[in-house]
Design a protein around this nucleic acid. Structure first.
Lengths: 105, 105
DNA sequence: TTTATATTTCGTAAATTTACGAAATGAATA
DNA sequence: TATTCATTTCGTAAATTTACGAAATATAAA
C-alpha cells in the first residue's frame, strides 16, 4: 500500500508520459494505423477502411483503436453507422515535443 | 506458415523499427534508465549506481538493461567486476530521426 | 417493424512482460 | 586456493497484451 504510493511517485511526470505514448507506439499495427491516419489529414478514416488493409480481425483492429484513443493519440467522431477516426492534434504535438526533447541529447 | 510470411512482410521496415524502439521506451523504469545515462554523457554508469536510485530488485534492473541493450539503445562495456553502460549513440540517433519523421505531420 | 450494416464488447486462449529471490558467473583479492 | 563482489541468469508467479469469433449495439434502410 505504502510501497505503491512510493512507486507511483518515483518516476517524473514526463517519464511516465513518454512511457505511455511509447506503449501506444509499441506495436506495428498501431504504428501502421497512425501512419494511415496521419497521411489522411483532411479526410480522416473509418475503421472499415483500415480493416480492408490489415491482416487482422475487425475486432482486433477495434481494440487497437481503443488503445490509441485511450493513449490520446487519436479521436473518433461518431457518424453512424460509421466512426470517423482522426489524429488528436493536441496530444500528437505533445508526444512529438516529448520525444524530441528526450532524444535531443 | 504462409500467413506468417505475409504478416512478417506486412508492415514497413520503418514501422517495425519504430514499434521496436517504442517498446523499449514503453516502461517508466527504462525511460528513467535512459534519462540517467543520457545525462551522464562522459561518465556513463554502472548498473549498481542505478540500482541505488531505483525501487526495484537488482535482477529486475538487469533485465531492463538487457532489453535496452537488445533494442540497441545502450551498450555495456565490461570493466570487471563492473559493467559500464552508455547510450549507443548510433542507434540513439536513428531512433531520434525515426520518431521525429513520424511525428512531423 | 424487420432487416442490414459498421463497429464494439465479451469470452477466452496463447504469448509476453514484469517482478522477485536464489543460484550462477567471472574476475580481483586475500 | 578460497573468498568477495557486481552483475546476470534461472525458476517461477502474477499481470498484461494480442488475437479470434460470437454476440451485442445502435443507427439507417427496406
Amino acid at each position: 500500500m505504502n510501497s505503491m504510493l512510493i512507486k507511483d511517485n518515483y518516476y517524473s511526470e514526463k517519464q511516465e508520459k513518454i512511457a505511455r505514448f511509447a506503449k501506444a507506439l509499441s506495436n506495428p499495427v498501431r504504428v501502421y494505423i497512425l501512419d494511415y491516419l496521419a497521411n489522411n489529414l483532411d479526410k480522416c478514416c473509418y475503421s472499415g477502411d483500415m480493416a480492408e488493409e490489415l491482416p487482422i480481425a475487425r475486432s482486433t483492429l477495434s481494440e487497437h483503436l481503443k488503445e490509441l484513443k485511450m493513449a490520446g493519440l487519436i479521436q473518433g467522431e461518431i457518424n453512424p453507422p460509421y466512426i470517423k477516426y482522426c489524429i488528436n492534434r493536441e496530444n500528437w504535438e505533445e508526444a512529438k515535443q516529448l520525444f524530441a526533447a528526450f532524444f535531443k541529447r
